[in-house]
Write a protein that binds this DNA or RNA. Sequence first.
DNA 1: CTCCATGCAAAATATTTGCAATTCA
DNA 2: TGAATTGCAAATATTTTGCATGGAG
Lengths: 146, 146
Amino acid sequence: MSSNTWLDQLRENGYRLTESRRAVVEVVATTERALTPVEVFDAARSRYPALGLVTVYRTLEKLEQLGLVQRVHQENGCNAYLTHARGHQHLIICKTCGRAEYFSGDDISSLIQRVSQQHGFTVKDHWLQLSGLCPDCQKLRDEGDD
Amino acid sequence: MSSNTWLDQLRENGYRLTESRRAVVEVVATTERALTPVEVFDAARSRYPALGLVTVYRTLEKLEQLGLVQRVHQENGCNAYLTHARGHQHLIICKTCGRAEYFSGDDISSLIQRVSQQHGFTVKDHWLQLSGLCPDCQKLRDEGDD
DNA sequence: CTCCATGCAAAATATTTGCAATTCA
DNA sequence: TGAATTGCAAATATTTTGCATGGAG
């Protein structure tokens, strides 16, 4: 969907548009869950078989610098990448299928203010992530295991 | 400080108290910032030079299972371990020196409820972490760099 | 004395770097 | 054409495993 926007962003920042980059961008931009470099590699090779894993790493690095993807930290590790939300948003991730969605409008400013005062810290950033079951996985669970 | 409690916990769970484990426990239990396995290794070797890095990994694994330490996820990675707070608490970490403190009393239940309804997710866990400058590092910054 | 635990070495992973060949602009 | 980019291979970095020895209980 937003693949073209991403490609524009790359071009505008002086990067060349190669088949490798197109393949990586298409995979990450159209997947709604966080993917590890190897997962991106596997998925993108079906579109461009000559792709190398190294290029996936390098492309993800650039996309992260441009703010198009972000690293997602989970219990299993923190090496998965996901489309970055526009503006200040937070993540909710499904524990079963990994599906991720963003939400905004966090009203935790009062909490931050309280903690700042109590601990004497100057708070610069905050990071909030929810996890649970997405609608589909709830349904599967309710209907019993298949 | 709580080193002894930790050692008790280990013993009560059927683990033997060895010099290696004492050294690792003492380092992690008395450090107020998150440490990587290698950092623990280096610090603990000054107390017990025969220590091996592998044992650090294995000990941290057990401490994590017992809920005595927790992994801390930061921008640089998620392989640092910190004393686990009792009960449900959240972290605030200093961006400069890495010092970490826990805070509790998060009143984000209304937020969680709202997001649950809007996205249809059943929220099971949440993870909130603040970062900024601790009092000491603010002071240093205010007084100019030394 | 009996196992659990250790440390070494080596294996298995994960990520980064050097470099000649390729390809976009 | 010229410089950016690629993919391979190899170098690092990180974590795990196999196994003989050592030490706690």
